[in-house]
Nucleic acid binder design. Structure first.
Length: 289
DNA sequence: AACTCTATCAACCGCGTGGCA
DNA sequence: GTGCCACGCGGTTGATAGAGT
């Protein structure tokens, strides 16, 4: 097989882009559209590798990129999304219109991460960085103690058809729950589509009086050992499991419904949720996506 | 003014994944 | 089923600006 040589091995230009190169790239993409990055430089007449062109366009030249400082609302959203998603910058960026994954990643690494993790971490990070090292190259961390409970398969949700909006209180509850799950290694990963901006740019500031749509369509990939979800979960060998949850205004949601959903082999095609009536969810210990 | 340190962010690198033949 | 290819992602690097001494 063999990897295609990178630009440095092909004698292509690297480093900072000039205004002239930017102009050529923008002009080409405006005329021909994005994509075909591998052949774009040649077609556009740029002595750059396709990767570099793509990155330059996505992170800097795209017309919808928002310039300027990150607002407090955006900060708050980043923090909350990071708590939920971890270092999945592209997903986080997808919830912040006009912001790029690179920008958010940089902002987190230089500002927010320090604030969130405290001044000690900040010092460590700073020191490591100034020495040209990263935290990952530090002294090896002792491996976690062996698990004594039965292994829980971590389903990986690979698709989410719509963003999840919830009132502050509910959102906090869900986030906490998900973080607890993450801590107990029952982490669920899910992706949020990039091209569906939130109804409200500040996801966390949804009006609690409004209905909150939930439309999750998670395809849980079987990773070979089956899927287990909670005590009431099921396990099956091979294949994959689809979890469909969506909302309308007809059926109020309560914890019982979720329990039923879980009890039914974790699969019930049409679970209808109405977060207007979701107070009981806040008391629920069991929230599984 | 000169030097060092620190923070920032654009750009690079390598890997994973999905589509296709 | 397999290999190739293009693309996207997250981690990392390095240039540079600004602050501090």
């Amino acid at each position: 097989m063999g990897r295609k040589p990178c630009c440095s091995k092909e004698g292509l230009k690297r480093g900072a882009w000039t205004a002239h190169e930017d102009k050529i790239l923008v002009s080409y993409i405006e005329t021909h559209g994005e994509g075909k990055w591998g052949s774009l430089p040649k077609r556009a007449g740029l002595n750059r590798c396709g990767k570099s062109c793509r990155l330059r366009w996505l992170n800097y030249l795209r017309p919808d990129i928002k310039r300027g400082n990150i607002s407090e609302e955006e900060e708050d959203l980043i923090i909350r999304l990071h708590k939920l998603l971890g270092n999945r910058w592209s997903l986080i960026a997808g919830r912040l219109p006009g912001r790029t994954d690179n920008e958010i990643k940089n902002y987190w690494n230089t500002t927010l991460g320090k604030r969130v993790h405290g001044s000690l971490d900040s010092k460590a990070t700073s020191t490591a960085k100034s020495k040209g090292k990263t935290l990952m190259t530090g002294p090896p961390v002792a491996p976690p103690p062996p698990r004594t409970d039965p292994p829980v398969i971590r389903p990986k949700a690979v698709r989410c058809t719509r963003s999840f909006c919830a009132p502050d209180q509910l959102m906090s509850s869900l986030l906490d729950n998900l973080v607890q799950r993450e801590n107990s290694e029952k982490r669920t990963l899910f992706e949020v589509p990039q091209h569906e901006p939130l109804n409200d740019p500040g996801m966390g500031s949804m009006d609690s009086d409004k209905a909150c749509p939930l439309d999750l369509d998670f395809l849980l990939q079987d990773i070979g050992e089956g899927i287990q979800v909670g005590d009431n979960g099921t396990s099956e060998e091979g294949g994959s499991t689809n979890f469909d949850m969506y909302s309308n205004d007809s059926v109020p949601f309560d914890g019982t419904m979720l329990e039923n959903w879980m009890a039914n082999d974790c699969y019930q095609p049409d679970v209808t949720l109405d977060f207007q009536s979701s107070a009981s969810l806040l008391d629920s210990e069991e929230i599984w996506f």
